[in-house]
Nucleic acid binder design. Sequence first.
DNA 1: GCCAACGTTGGC
DNA 2: GCCAACGTTGGC
Length: 154
Amino acid sequence: MKSEPNVFSFEDLLKAPKKTTHWEGVRNYQARNLMRDQFKLGDLVLFYHSNAEPTGIFGVCEVVKEAYPDSSAWDSKNKYFDSDSKKKGINPWVMVDIKAVSRFSIPVLRDTLKDSSALKEMLVLKKGSRLSVQPVTESEFQHILQLGKPIAIK
DNA sequence: GCCAACGTTGGC
DNA sequence: GCCAACGTTGGC
């Protein structure tokens, strides 16, 4: 999952109550479908900082609540407010809850991903790959864990 | 700050 | 249904 650290960083998640957050504001159908259909309780998620210096993966989270309606879509004060969907009376957007489980003692930076032959096919490295939620293969995930040397969060 | 890639919108 | 115009994302 991608986040701009100046909006919400991995550090912010560590500081959040129960180190857990609602992943609100996804307004792209492909990303929504991934959260709705693929995210299962206990699944692990890599936390990626985009549009930042540096960009890369900073830790691992766990899905602690599967997809449910994203209430921010109907909250006119929220920056992710979707007035059209509220007018129609159908909220198409979902969120999941994720909890930080480990932080990388060595952040796996974008340059590192590019340098690793096992990882250079990762979706996030493809040109124009803007999806804020992206699938990661098991082998990619394991390689990244090795590189990041995760420290469990108590 | 630039701009390529992508998704969405809306005129036709 | 096509596609040009537009807004957004995000690496660089």
